[in-house]
Simulated assay, not measured.
Amino acid sequence: MAGERVNRQLVLRRRPRGMLTTEDVELVEGPVPECGDGQVLVRQVYLQMDAAVRSWLDEGHGYLPAVEIGEPVRSGGMGRVIESRHPDIPVGAWCAAGLPGWQDHVAVDGDSPIVNHFPADWDALFQLAVISSPAATAYFGLTDVGELSAGDSVLISAAGGSTGAVAVQVARNLGASVVGIAGTDEKCRWVESLGAEACVNRRTEDLAARLRELRPQGFDVYFDSVGGEVLDIALRRLAPGARVVIVGAISMYNASGRPPGPSNYLNLINTQAKMVGFQGLSYVDRYPEAWDLMWRWKAEGKMEYKADVARGFESCVDQLNSLFTGANTGKALVQLIDDPGPGPY
C-alpha cells in the first residue's frame, strides 16, 4: 500500500434519469490527496450504499447540496488510517470519514464531528451495518420523534433493509410489538427472526387487508422509509394519537416528475395523529447515546445484522440499485480491497 500513488474515483458523469446506470458515472484516476496538519489519510475498504445516495445525484435543494458533475458520488465509507498528522488518531485505526464518496483515498480533518475513528481490532461490519446511519435514524426516529413507549404497536416499512432491521430490533427491545413490511418472503422470514410478530410481503400479499387483520385497532407508530402507495395504505391504519415518522421515500427516488401525494392524509385529522419528517444528522451530538446502546444490545445478543457485500468499483451501480429493486437484504456495501489490517503500510 505504501507504493500507491493513484486515487481512483467513480465520479458523476451526467444526471441519472431513473435508476443510476454505468453510463451516468465514470472511473477516473487522480493523485492521492495530501495529509495536512490535524488530518488523517484514509484508504477506504468499504463504501456504504444508502438510498439517500441516489437522491443526492439530482439537481435541486435538499438537506445536502447535489453532487456536482465530475465529483465522486457521495456516500459513507470506512477504511484504515494509512497516514496520520493528528495526535490522537494512530495509523492502523479504522476510520469512518464522514461522506467521502466513491473513491479509494480521502484526507479528512480528524476533529470533524462526522469523522470517527476506532481501534484497529474494531468490528467494522457491525459498525457499518448497525452503528453508522441506521442506529441514529432508527433509535432517535422511534424514541424522540415517534415517542415510542413500551406496549406500543409499531409498523415498519422496508423492514428487511439496514435501517428497517435496526428499527425492528430497537422497537422490540424497548417493549413494543412490531409488524414489518418487506418485499420478499426471504426478507420477511428474517424480519420475523429479529422479533417482529409478523412481516407482510407487499409484493405478494394484500397489504391493506393484512394490516387490517393484524391490527384492527391500528398502529401507534409508523416508521416509514418507502413513501408512495405503502405510506398511503399505512395512513389508513393509524390508532388514535399515532405518530408517523418519515425517514425516507425509497419508492420515489428514481421517479420522473413529482409523485402524487397521499390520498389518505385526512386520516391524520380523524385520528389526531401527527406525521413528522426526520434526519438522523440532526442528532449528531447525541450519536454516542444510540451507539452505546447498540453495542450493549449486541453483547446481550439483542442486535443482529446482515451485510450484503459486493466487490470493486464495478459493483457500485448495481449494488446501489439493489436497494430499489429489493435485491439486497440488510446493509448493502461495496468492498474495494481486502482489509490490509493495522499496518505497517
Rank of each mutant, 00 (worst) to 15 (best):
P260L: 13
G261K: 09
V221T: 06
L281H: 07
V245K: 06
Y265N: 02
L266H: 06
V244A: 04
V230N: 05
K274E: 09
D232H: 08
D224K: 09
Q217H: 00
A239K: 00
K274Y: 01
N264A: 14
N270P: 00
M252F: 13
Q272T: 12
V244E: 03
N254L: 09
R210P: 07
F219N: 03
L238G: 00
S225F: 01
S263I: 08
A239Y: 00
Y253A: 09
G257Q: 15
S263D: 09
S256N: 07
A234Y: 02
S282L: 12
F219T: 02
M275P: 02
D220F: 00
V244I: 09
A209F: 01
Q272P: 01
D220A: 04
R237G: 00
V244F: 04
L266T: 05
A249S: 12
A234E: 01
R215S: 12
R215Q: 12
D232R: 05
V245G: 05
Q272V: 11
P259F: 13
F223L: 08
S225G: 10
A249T: 08
F223I: 08
G241Y: 12
M275C: 12
L268N: 09
L266E: 01
P216I: 02
R236K: 14
E213H: 09
S263N: 10
I246A: 06
D232N: 14
F278D: 04
I246Y: 04
G248C: 09
G277R: 04
G227H: 07
P240I: 06
A242D: 07
P260M: 12
G218F: 00
Q272D: 12
S251Q: 11
A209M: 01
V230T: 15
S256L: 14
Y265S: 10
S256M: 11
R210S: 14
S251G: 10
N254Q: 12
R237C: 05
N267G: 10
S256D: 08
A209D: 04
V244M: 03
M252C: 15
F219C: 06
S225Q: 08
Q279Y: 11
R237K: 03
D232S: 08
P262S: 14
